[in-house]
Protein backbone atom coordinates (compact mmCIF):
# COMPACT_ATOMS: atom_id res chain seq x y z
CA UNK A 1 0.00 0.00 0.00
CA UNK A 2 2.82 2.39 0.94
CA UNK A 3 4.58 1.34 -2.22
CA UNK A 4 1.52 1.99 -4.38
CA UNK A 5 1.00 5.42 -2.84
CA UNK A 6 4.69 6.26 -3.22
CA UNK A 7 4.77 5.18 -6.85
CA UNK A 8 1.53 6.92 -7.81
CA UNK A 9 2.55 10.10 -6.01
CA UNK A 10 5.93 10.07 -7.70
CA UNK A 11 4.50 9.60 -11.19
CA UNK A 12 1.84 12.25 -10.56
CA UNK A 13 4.47 14.79 -9.54
CA UNK A 14 6.36 14.03 -12.72
CA UNK A 15 3.18 14.23 -14.86
CA UNK A 16 1.96 17.51 -13.41
CA UNK A 17 5.47 18.92 -13.62
CA UNK A 18 5.29 18.48 -17.37
CA UNK A 19 2.45 20.82 -18.36
CA UNK A 20 3.22 20.48 -22.05
CA UNK A 21 2.51 16.78 -22.28
CA UNK A 22 -0.49 17.21 -20.00
CA UNK A 23 -2.03 19.57 -22.55
CA UNK A 24 -0.66 17.82 -25.60
CA UNK A 25 -2.17 14.41 -24.87
CA UNK A 26 -5.62 16.02 -24.58
CA UNK A 27 -5.22 18.25 -27.59
CA UNK A 28 -6.90 16.07 -30.21
CA UNK A 29 -10.25 15.64 -28.45
CA UNK A 30 -10.09 19.31 -27.50
CA UNK A 31 -9.67 20.32 -31.14
CA UNK A 32 -12.56 18.08 -32.13
CA UNK A 33 -14.63 19.72 -29.45
CA UNK A 34 -13.93 23.26 -30.61
CA UNK A 35 -13.56 22.85 -34.38
CA UNK A 36 -15.91 19.93 -35.05
CA UNK A 37 -18.40 20.22 -32.18
CA UNK A 38 -20.23 23.30 -33.51
CA UNK A 39 -20.77 21.53 -36.88
CA UNK A 40 -21.93 18.35 -35.20
CA UNK A 41 -24.34 20.32 -33.04
CA UNK A 42 -26.00 21.78 -36.14
CA UNK A 43 -25.83 18.63 -38.27
CA UNK A 44 -29.07 17.23 -36.93
CA UNK A 45 -27.30 14.00 -35.91
CA UNK A 46 -27.18 14.93 -32.29
CA UNK A 47 -26.23 17.57 -29.80
CA UNK A 48 -23.20 18.16 -27.58
CA UNK A 49 -24.41 15.46 -25.21
CA UNK A 50 -23.90 12.92 -28.01
CA UNK A 51 -20.49 14.18 -29.09
CA UNK A 52 -18.80 14.73 -25.72
CA UNK A 53 -19.03 11.07 -24.57
CA UNK A 54 -17.28 10.12 -27.79
CA UNK A 55 -14.57 12.68 -27.11
CA UNK A 56 -14.03 11.18 -23.65
CA UNK A 57 -13.26 7.83 -25.26
CA UNK A 58 -11.03 9.55 -27.80
CA UNK A 59 -9.26 11.20 -24.88
CA UNK A 60 -8.80 7.80 -23.28
CA UNK A 61 -7.10 6.60 -26.44
CA UNK A 62 -4.82 9.59 -26.93
CA UNK A 63 -3.98 10.08 -23.25
CA UNK A 64 -4.05 6.78 -21.33
CA UNK A 65 -3.62 4.81 -24.55
CA UNK A 66 -0.28 6.46 -25.28
CA UNK A 67 0.99 6.36 -21.70
CA UNK A 68 3.21 3.37 -22.44
CA UNK A 69 5.59 5.80 -24.06
CA UNK A 70 7.05 6.78 -20.68
CA UNK A 71 8.04 3.22 -19.85
CA UNK A 72 10.05 2.95 -23.06
CA UNK A 73 12.49 5.47 -21.58
CA UNK A 74 12.46 3.87 -18.16
CA UNK A 75 13.36 0.61 -19.79
CA UNK A 76 16.14 2.12 -21.86
CA UNK A 77 17.79 3.87 -18.91
CA UNK A 78 17.65 0.96 -16.48
CA UNK A 79 14.99 2.55 -14.26
CA UNK A 80 12.61 -0.33 -14.86
CA UNK A 81 15.19 -2.95 -13.88
CA UNK A 82 15.95 -1.01 -10.75
CA UNK A 83 12.25 -1.09 -9.83
CA UNK A 84 11.97 -4.75 -10.71
CA UNK A 85 14.66 -5.77 -8.20
CA UNK A 86 12.69 -4.17 -5.37
CA UNK A 87 10.33 -6.42 -3.39
CA UNK A 88 7.30 -4.47 -4.63
CA UNK A 89 4.72 -6.74 -6.27
CA UNK A 90 4.57 -6.65 -10.04
CA UNK A 91 0.92 -5.59 -10.06
CA UNK A 92 1.83 -2.61 -7.85
CA UNK A 93 4.62 -1.61 -10.21
CA UNK A 94 2.00 -1.53 -12.98
CA UNK A 95 -0.81 0.08 -10.99
CA UNK A 96 1.40 2.91 -9.72
CA UNK A 97 1.71 4.06 -13.30
CA UNK A 98 -1.86 3.26 -14.28
CA UNK A 99 -3.40 5.18 -11.37
CA UNK A 100 -1.36 8.20 -12.37
CA UNK A 101 -2.71 7.89 -15.91
CA UNK A 102 -6.25 7.67 -14.59
CA UNK A 103 -5.86 10.79 -12.49
CA UNK A 104 -4.35 12.67 -15.42
CA UNK A 105 -7.18 11.52 -17.66
CA UNK A 106 -9.76 12.55 -15.09
CA UNK A 107 -8.34 16.07 -14.92
CA UNK A 108 -8.27 16.31 -18.71
CA UNK A 109 -11.80 14.94 -18.98
CA UNK A 110 -13.12 17.50 -16.51
CA UNK A 111 -11.43 20.25 -18.52
CA UNK A 112 -13.09 19.05 -21.72
CA UNK A 113 -16.49 18.78 -20.09
CA UNK A 114 -16.20 22.28 -18.65
CA UNK A 115 -15.21 23.65 -22.05
CA UNK A 116 -18.09 21.76 -23.65
CA UNK A 117 -20.45 23.24 -21.12
CA UNK A 118 -19.34 26.71 -22.16
CA UNK A 119 -20.05 25.76 -25.78
CA UNK A 120 -23.56 24.57 -24.99
CA UNK A 121 -23.43 21.07 -23.49
CA UNK A 122 -26.29 20.32 -21.13
CA UNK A 123 -26.37 17.03 -19.23
CA UNK A 124 -27.47 15.88 -15.77
CA UNK A 125 -24.74 16.21 -13.14
CA UNK A 126 -25.23 12.68 -11.80
CA UNK A 127 -24.87 11.30 -15.30
CA UNK A 128 -21.71 13.30 -15.98
CA UNK A 129 -20.09 12.26 -12.70
CA UNK A 130 -20.89 8.61 -13.34
CA UNK A 131 -19.53 9.03 -16.85
CA UNK A 132 -16.25 10.27 -15.39
CA UNK A 133 -16.11 7.17 -13.23
CA UNK A 134 -16.75 4.92 -16.22
CA UNK A 135 -14.10 6.77 -18.24
CA UNK A 136 -11.64 6.13 -15.41
CA UNK A 137 -12.38 2.41 -15.45
CA UNK A 138 -11.84 2.38 -19.18
CA UNK A 139 -8.57 4.28 -18.83
CA UNK A 140 -7.21 1.62 -16.44
CA UNK A 141 -7.58 -0.94 -19.22
CA UNK A 142 -6.18 1.38 -21.88
CA UNK A 143 -3.13 2.41 -19.86
CA UNK A 144 -2.38 -1.17 -18.81
CA UNK A 145 -2.54 -2.40 -22.37
CA UNK A 146 -0.42 0.52 -23.48
CA UNK A 147 2.33 -0.51 -21.03
CA UNK A 148 1.95 -4.11 -22.14
CA UNK A 149 2.45 -3.04 -25.74
CA UNK A 150 5.40 -0.82 -24.83
CA UNK A 151 7.15 -3.71 -23.09
CA UNK A 152 6.35 -6.14 -25.88
CA UNK A 153 6.99 -4.19 -29.08
CA UNK A 154 10.43 -3.15 -30.15
CA UNK A 155 11.21 0.26 -28.64
CA UNK A 156 11.17 2.21 -31.87
CA UNK A 157 7.87 0.68 -32.96
CA UNK A 158 5.73 1.68 -30.01
CA UNK A 159 4.95 5.28 -30.98
CA UNK A 160 4.17 4.68 -34.67
CA UNK A 161 2.16 1.50 -34.02
CA UNK A 162 0.10 2.98 -31.21
CA UNK A 163 -0.63 6.31 -32.85
CA UNK A 164 -1.75 4.46 -35.97
CA UNK A 165 -3.89 2.03 -34.00
CA UNK A 166 -5.69 4.85 -32.21
CA UNK A 167 -7.32 6.11 -35.43
CA UNK A 168 -9.30 2.98 -36.45
CA UNK A 169 -10.17 2.26 -32.83
CA UNK A 170 -11.59 5.72 -32.44
CA UNK A 171 -13.48 5.67 -35.74
CA UNK A 172 -14.89 2.21 -35.00
CA UNK A 173 -16.08 3.24 -31.57
CA UNK A 174 -18.54 5.65 -33.13
CA UNK A 175 -17.03 8.43 -31.07
CA UNK A 176 -17.45 11.07 -33.78
CA UNK A 177 -20.69 9.91 -35.39
CA UNK A 178 -23.09 7.39 -33.83
CA UNK A 179 -22.83 3.90 -35.27
CA UNK A 180 -26.61 3.87 -35.73
CA UNK A 181 -25.79 5.63 -39.03
CA UNK A 182 -23.42 2.88 -40.13
CA UNK A 183 -24.00 0.27 -42.85
CA UNK A 184 -24.40 -3.24 -41.47
CA UNK A 185 -20.83 -4.43 -42.04
CA UNK A 186 -19.33 -1.41 -40.32
CA UNK A 187 -21.74 -1.84 -37.45
CA UNK A 188 -20.60 -5.44 -37.03
CA UNK A 189 -16.90 -4.55 -37.08
CA UNK A 190 -17.55 -1.78 -34.61
CA UNK A 191 -19.22 -4.22 -32.23
CA UNK A 192 -15.97 -6.18 -32.10
CA UNK A 193 -14.18 -3.28 -30.39
CA UNK A 194 -14.72 -2.57 -26.69
CA UNK A 195 -14.87 1.19 -27.16
CA UNK A 196 -18.15 1.02 -29.05
CA UNK A 197 -19.87 -0.16 -25.86
CA UNK A 198 -18.08 2.42 -23.76
CA UNK A 199 -19.18 5.27 -26.04
CA UNK A 200 -22.80 4.13 -26.00
CA UNK A 201 -22.77 3.64 -22.25
CA UNK A 202 -21.39 7.14 -21.76
CA UNK A 203 -24.01 8.57 -24.12
CA UNK A 204 -26.73 6.91 -22.06
CA UNK A 205 -25.32 8.58 -18.96
CA UNK A 206 -25.16 12.00 -20.60
CA UNK A 207 -28.77 11.48 -21.73
CA UNK A 208 -29.82 10.55 -18.22
CA UNK A 209 -31.11 7.13 -19.28
CA UNK A 210 -29.71 5.24 -16.33
CA UNK A 211 -31.78 2.12 -16.95
CA UNK A 212 -30.81 1.57 -20.57
CA UNK A 213 -29.17 -1.68 -21.72
CA UNK A 214 -26.50 0.42 -23.45
CA UNK A 215 -25.31 1.62 -20.06
CA UNK A 216 -25.27 -1.89 -18.64
CA UNK A 217 -23.19 -3.11 -21.57
CA UNK A 218 -20.90 -0.12 -21.33
CA UNK A 219 -20.20 -0.88 -17.68
CA UNK A 220 -19.72 -4.63 -18.23
CA UNK A 221 -17.40 -4.22 -21.20
CA UNK A 222 -15.36 -1.44 -19.57
CA UNK A 223 -14.87 -3.45 -16.38
CA UNK A 224 -13.92 -6.56 -18.33
CA UNK A 225 -11.52 -4.48 -20.40
CA UNK A 226 -9.86 -3.07 -17.27
CA UNK A 227 -9.49 -6.54 -15.73
CA UNK A 228 -8.05 -7.89 -18.96
CA UNK A 229 -5.61 -4.98 -19.23
CA UNK A 230 -4.33 -5.30 -15.68
CA UNK A 231 -3.98 -9.07 -16.00
CA UNK A 232 -1.99 -8.86 -19.21
CA UNK A 233 0.06 -5.94 -17.91
CA UNK A 234 0.97 -7.74 -14.70
CA UNK A 235 1.94 -10.78 -16.65
CA UNK A 236 4.15 -8.69 -18.84
CA UNK A 237 5.86 -7.18 -15.80
CA UNK A 238 6.41 -10.68 -14.49
CA UNK A 239 7.84 -12.09 -17.65
CA UNK A 240 11.52 -13.01 -17.50
CA UNK A 241 11.38 -12.94 -13.72
CA UNK A 242 12.96 -15.74 -11.81
Amino acid sequence: MTALAALTGHYLRVAFGNRFSLVFSALQPFLYLVLFGPLFDRSGVGSWAVLVPGLLVQLGLTSAGMSGFSIVFDQRFGVLERLRVTPVSRVTLLLGRVLKDSVVLLVQAVAIIVAAYALGLRAPLAGVLTALLLTTVLSVGMASLSYTAALTLRQELFAPVMSTLVVPLMLLSGALLPMSLAPAWLDVVSRLTPFRYAVEGLRALFAGSYASPALLWGVIVSLAFAVLGVTLGTRRFQKENA
Binding site: F73, D74, F77, G78, V79, E81, R82, V85
Partner: peptide
Protein backbone atom coordinates in the same frame (compact mmCIF):
# COMPACT_ATOMS: atom_id res chain seq x y z
CA UNK B 1 19.79 -7.89 -2.14
CA UNK B 2 20.99 -4.75 -3.85
CA UNK B 3 21.86 -4.60 -7.53
CA UNK B 4 23.90 -2.02 -9.38
CA UNK B 5 23.43 -2.67 -13.08
CA UNK B 6 26.16 -2.22 -15.65
CA UNK B 7 24.10 0.33 -17.59
CA UNK B 8 23.00 2.62 -14.77
CA UNK B 9 19.68 3.17 -13.06
CA UNK B 10 18.61 6.79 -13.68
CA UNK B 11 16.72 8.46 -16.47
Amino acid sequence: IGYVAQGGAFA
